[in-house]
């Protein structure tokens, strides 16, 4: 009796997997995305596809809309989506709240992580993980497992345990804030991680630790989108694809060589090309 039941369960699961795979072969699919803030258009028709196991870099001059794109994918309501769609594993996420997107595996490493006085890093993570579990119909993670996970991931990011009892981002140095973001990413194990200017404010050692963390978290099942102004971070997190965002549009896509070219020549030639 038990055996039969098990068999059925396995079959069902397989079918479900097949179906998901069929509906969309891409983890993230952005179609003709337009977004504005206070009536001012910032994204003007973004098309982007990111598959599982891939690393994409989005580069571009200041004000081109890189951070806006990250915020819009994460569901920040400061920005209004005026046209276009975002699909996550084939599902249109337009109506999902930021926390629902997070529950579905979207993680945004903030360019400017927010301070929450009095709430320790540990308590914050505990809440975040258990809320995600609750959304999936799971019980709270047992304290023992939680501690083990925290120990494991803090070692990965070379984070001092004392650091975990400090108030979230309050009084953190720039480097500590960014490292804490990647620590949270490690804890939450997202499907799609968007790193918004994670390299800004990092010295070379911190950069290496952060990049190392990201590389270790990379797998064939998840994807990483690295948003950066400079090529520096891409020496450590090697992208499969590089896109150049300018004036709210992706004006050029290529491989990691494009990043090197940008480093060498700057963004002016892109601007000229775009103007033509």
């Amino acid at each position: 009796m038990l055996g039969v039941f098990r068999l059925i369960k396995i079959t069902l699961k397989k079918e479900k997997n097949n179906k998901e795979h069929k509906s969309s072969d891409k983890m993230l699919k952005i179609k003709d995305l337009h977004a504005s803030v206070e009536g001012k258009g910032i994204l003007k028709g973004i098309n982007l596809e990111v598959g599982a196991g891939e690393v994409h870099a989005i580069m571009g001059p200041n004000g081109s809309g890189k951070s806006t794109l990250a915020s819009v994918i994460a569901g920040n309501e400061t920005y209004e989506v005026t046209a276009g769609d975002i699909f996550l594993n084939g599902e249109n996420i337009e109506d999902l709240s930021p926390e629902e997107r997070a529950h579905n595996g979207v993680f945004l490493s903030f360019q400017y992580p927010v301070e929450i006085p009095g709430v320790s890093v540990t308590n914050f993570m505990k809440t975040a993980i258990n809320e995600s579990r609750k959304a999936k119909g799971l019980e709270d993670m047992p304290a023992k497992d939680m501690l083990k996970l925290i120990r494991e991931k803090s070692e990965l990011l070379e984070i001092d345990r004392k650091f975990l009892s400090r108030s979230l981002n309050e009084g953190f140095s720039g480097g500590e804030k960014k490292r804490n973001e990647i620590f949270q990413m490690a804890m939450l194990e997202p499907k799609l991680a968007i790193l918004d200017e994670t390299d800004s404010g990092l010295d070379i050692d911190a950069l290496r630790i952060v990049a190392n963390g990201v590389n270790k978290l990379k797998s064939k099942d998840n994807a990483v989108v690295v948003i950066t102004h400079y090529q520096r971070l891409l020496e450590y997190i090697v992208p499969d694809f590089v896109h150049v965002l300018y004036n709210g549009k992706i004006v050029k896509s290529g491989t990691k060589e494009l990043a090197m070219e940008l480093e060498e020549k700057g963004y002016d030639w892109i601007k000229q090309e775009a103007a033509v």
Partner: peptide, 20 residues
């Protein structure tokens, strides 16, 4: 928004912040 992005809904986020 920061809490939301980490999967914490607004109500819980407020509780967390007030607690802090």
């Amino acid at each position: 928004f920061y809490c939301n992005q980490r999967g914490i809904d607004t109500e819980k986020a407020i509780a967390l912040i007030v607690n802090g």
